[in-house]
Amino acid sequence: MNDLLEYTLRLGDDALIAAQRTGEWIAAAPQLEEDVALGNIALDQLGQARSLLQYAGSLDGRTEDELAYFRDEREFLNLQLCELPNGDFAFAMARLLYFATYQHLLYDELRSGADETLAGVAGKAVKEVAYHVDHATQWVLRLGDGTEESHRRMQAALEALWPYTAEMFASDDLVRRLSVAVDPSTLQDEWTNRVLAVIDQSTCERPSSSYQHSGGRSGRHTEHMGFLLAELQHVARSHPGATW
């Protein structure tokens, strides 16, 4: 697989799988207003996924649908952070804080990068994810500094997801070789500053786990990924080429 294709799939798969999980919240959020908010966020993520997968497909002659619906688990290059099951609402907001803060830093770099298409997608998406960061921040602050139960749940979610955060910043040969790529290791310090500032303000403790998962970028996923893909792909695979 060529470097640019693989890099674009990483970004596109992150957005696609995040959109699938965020979308699962629709009609299940704590209030109607939050359903709409999460619906908007999921559609932002899906829009980013479509642009990125269209671009990836243009590099090797596949359509966005072929990439989304007809690849198997090991061919997806998304972060494991994106595929974990939703858990409770605190978990969703902790994940959105971690992921959107990362995406924001990444897209902000990428929009001044040398690849025009990636820069274009990033330039549009950076405003979207800035709002996602804000939305997650508002909830992390309120749940962390809310009731005893909301604090407990927020703390548990921040802890549970922390071991999936280092994967976002793992550098490898591909990002070092590919000049248009952003080496994500350069984003980690700023990400840590921003996220810990929110956690501190929320009155939660900083997560302490040092163990870190990895593998998503090389197609190794958690046990949950297969179930996610089954739901994402089964209609397209049951009725190949169907349109409406």
């Binding site: 209030q31 908010a37 804000d134 508002q138 309120r142």
Partner: peptide
């Protein structure tokens, strides 16, 4: 509905 003004604006 919203818990406070900041969230109301976002909603």
């Amino acid at each position: 509905h919203a818990p406070d003004a900041t969230m109301a604006l976002r909603n």
